[in-house]
Amino acid sequence: MTNSKPKYKLTDQDFNQINRRSLFGFQLGWNYEKMQNSGYLYTILPQLRKIYGDDTPELREMMKTHMQFFNTSNFFNTIITGLDLAVEENEGIEGKDTVTGIKVGLMGSFAAIGDSIFASLIPTIFGALAASMATQGNPIGVIIWVAACLLICVFRWKQLRFAYGKGVSLVTDMRDQLNALTDSATVLGVFMVGALVATMVNIKFAWVPQIGKVTMNIQNNLDMIIPKLLPAAVVGFVYWMLGKKGMTSTKAIFIVLILCVILGGLGIVTKI
């Protein structure tokens, strides 16, 4: 107890072990109550044991600390781990409050950045590419996406060491870069959504009403204004609908499904 400053210094093997555990085990224990708590402990447990020594009260205390609620992006979790271990390695149990502060303070912002990049932007850009090739029976797009994911894994592997070395100043250093990067990626994302609306919603008006002796080809009239107006209108309609209170994406899917069955069943709209 008197000698509370730990003497252990993390080695390359330690970093590799943490990365392995993070990449293959971090979210297995995900649960409703405390989310990634057990996963976080799992990734660093061997290192905690080395830092504090087995069966010490310090180790028990820190294990309990790390079993508290934790939830962040699983693409950025090792950045927090790296900052955490840099503190624990130097200050030991005395750094407990700092560690809790780092974890609680950063998990929210990394969750937000991680989700916007890896749950929205990357799937939009690569998913759009893969899907548009796949509709023509071409699997190359999927393979490009897989290759991109492997590259991302390389960065996930490297960021632990990077964060550990840089310390807490990393977060302020990175913020501007990440924001600029995210903002530019959204430009590509928005552009691609526009492109997808124009190519991937394959429906048109089939209804050709007779007004007196004149047949009105609605689709052809619309095409003269701008092609693909109907797909754009459908997306606009769903976008508006999603702004309503209590609307979820799952509900929206079923509303569109039912409307399509009605309009398609009546022969007003047809697939191309």
């Binding site: 929205s120 994302g189 997808l196 399509c260 309009l263």
Partner: peptide, 24 residues
């Protein structure tokens, strides 16, 4: 027929949800 139309239209939902998340 209606279900086939729905199958062709459903991607529109994905685009709309995405636009809600992006700074349109």
């Amino acid at each position: 027929n209606g279900l086939a139309v729905a199958g062709a239209t459903l991607p529109a939902v994905g685009f709309a949800v995405l636009l809600r998340y992006l700074p349109v």
